[in-house]
């Protein structure tokens, strides 16, 4: 969860792992600050988001090529694994074409299934801003994915 959120912003495995460790450290050190006003996962995501964003701003090293982003090694004997890797690569490639902040928001919405209100809590952005970003990102993602996955998009929706 936390690692994926960090990765969506930083797009670099090592940096995302560093941010993940920092996130858990901060969460541990500020555990007393969790008031229970939101879900614990939302609180943790807000730390992860802020940590990754500040790490992104401090970044001096160039990011990886989007062609190599998060591509998993497929198991050649398992067709399902190959298919999953293809999809994963296509999704990573599509997300890499969005601004890091927007990629994280989309991931919070579709992967972690946070509500708009929860994303507002996590990111500190306004609700209307989050909605606009979600709308634009979804449109952009679908354009890229339809190009990358072609017919498979329709298989995904059971058509």
């Amino acid at each position: 969860m936390v690692h994926t959120a960090s990765y969506r912003i930083l797009r670099n495995q090592e940096e995302a792992e560093e941010a993940t460790q920092d996130t858990f450290m901060k969460a541990y050190q500020n555990l007393g600050g969790y008031q229970g006003g939101s879900k614990f996962s939302t609180w943790l995501f807000s730390i992860a988001y802020r940590t990754a964003i500040s790490q992104l701003r401090r970044r001096r090293i160039p990011t990886a090529s989007i062609d190599n982003l998060g591509v998993l090694e497929p198991n050649a004997h398992d067709p399902l694994a190959v298919e999953t890797v293809d999809r994963s690569a296509a999704l990573n490639k599509a997300l890499a074409q969005l601004p890091p902040e927007d990629a994280a928001i989309v991931s919070f919405f579709y992967l972690e299934e946070l509500s708009v209100e929860e994303i507002v809590t996590v990111t500190g952005l306004g609700a209307s801003n989050v909605k606009v970003k979600l709308h634009r990102s979804r449109k952009r993602l679908l354009e890229i994915l339809q190009r990358e996955l072609k017919e498979e998009v329709w298989t995904l929706i059971g058509d």
Partner: peptide
């Protein structure tokens, strides 16, 4: 349909696995 497709795609292929042993490293730091 777009929401449904994206939900499905993110759930099947959207998770990025951290390298092995990250839990241990976090616990050691803590």
């Amino acid at each position: 349909d777009a929401d449904k497709a994206l939900l499905e795609l993110f759930h099947t292929s959207g998770r990025i696995a951290a390298s092995e042993g990250i839990e241990t490293r976090i616990l050691e730091r803590i």
